[in-house]
Design a protein around this nucleic acid. Structure first.
Length: 276
DNA sequence: CGCCAGGGGAGCT
DNA sequence: AGCTCCCCTGGC
């Protein structure tokens, strides 16, 4: 067990912010996450967090995964006080962090995300992991499945992943897995590239367009300047930033602001809903 | 049953 | 850069 008191960290908000599809609400105050072949449960009460792993694993892996070396207060305090919309969004999602997830997993996950909703994206990825990932025991005596390696998908018939409920996205994932398995696109090299070069390289993958490439850059490469524009963000920009989002002010971490806006747009509907 | 939207993209012009 | 068409599932 690892105990930490952490500011601007809310595991529920992170789970609901739609950047990780392998996080789940286990029970009151407790969430699970599967990443890089590992399984972890996190329990949180206010700023007090309990990570169900030993100190070594926490320091070596999870600390960086949750981006805990970064102080998010600075991002939050930089928001223009006159920007009422963004002030609200940032206050509402002040516990969000940009996770440091795996490049290949983000690539496949955001291929699956297109024209899809988050609940179904989760099910698709769960299906994919159960069928092509590796089964491992978790500390509680149950089991979980790792994310399949590219080679496990690369030589399937292009429609095979429709069995996992991917629909027409099946061929995007299979062809991309093949491009990577055969070395047409080298993820290890992309890891070392700056944002623009990495994005250009990712755009070569079949099924990867502007928006998906930016999601991969933001969540899989931690390029915080990537600013994915999905339907929700476009609607918000249209409504609140007719003259364009002030990217200059937030230069270098526009993607963090994007995530506050996205979460706010996603959740505020259900907020008024639950108040009936 | 039809219609539409869900964190778009490919293939044209 | 903009347009059309493509494509799958779930909810209403």
């Amino acid at each position: 067990m690892v105990r930490r008191t952490i500011d601007n960290f809310d595991i529920r908000q992170i789970c609901d912010s739609g950047q990780c599809f392998r996080m789940a609400h286990k029970r009151e105050n407790t969430y699970s996450v599967i990443a890089a072949g590992r399984y972890l449960e996190i329990e949180q009460y206010g700023r007090d967090c309990i990570f169900a792993c030993d100190e070594e694993e926490f320091e070596e892996f999870w600390k960086a995964y949750f981006d805990l070396d970064c102080e998010y207060r600075g991002y939050i305090e930089s928001v223009n006080p006159n920007d009422e919309y963004l002030m609200n969004a940032v206050e509402f999602g002040s516990g969000i962090r940009i996770l440091r997830q795996e490049l290949w997993e983000m690539t496949a996950s955001f291929l699956i995300s297109q024209q899809n909703n988050i609940a179904r994206i989760r099910r698709c990825i769960q299906n994919l992991c159960e069928r092509y990932g590796e089964e491992r025991p978790d500390p509680r005596g149950e089991s979980y499945y790792t994310f399949p390696v590219p080679e496990a998908l690369a030589y399937l018939p292009e429609d095979e992943l429709k069995e996992c409920n991917l629909g027409y996205r099946s061929k995007y994932v299979v062809r991309t897995a093949r491009s990577i398995a055969e070395g047409m696109v080298r993820l290890e090299e992309i890891q070392g590239m700056r944002y623009q070069d990495a994005k250009a390289e990712l755009l070569k993958l079949y099924g990867v367009g502007e928006k998906v490439a930016d999601c991969i850059c933001l969540f899989g490469l931690h390029h915080l300047e990537a600013f994915p524009k999905d339907t929700h963000i476009l609607q918000a920009l249209e409504k609140h930033y007719k003259r364009g989002f002030p990217r200059r002010r937030y230069k270098g971490y526009e993607g963090v602001m994007q995530q506050y806006v996205f979460y706010w747009e996603l959740r505020k509907a259900s907020l008024t809903d639950s108040h009936r």
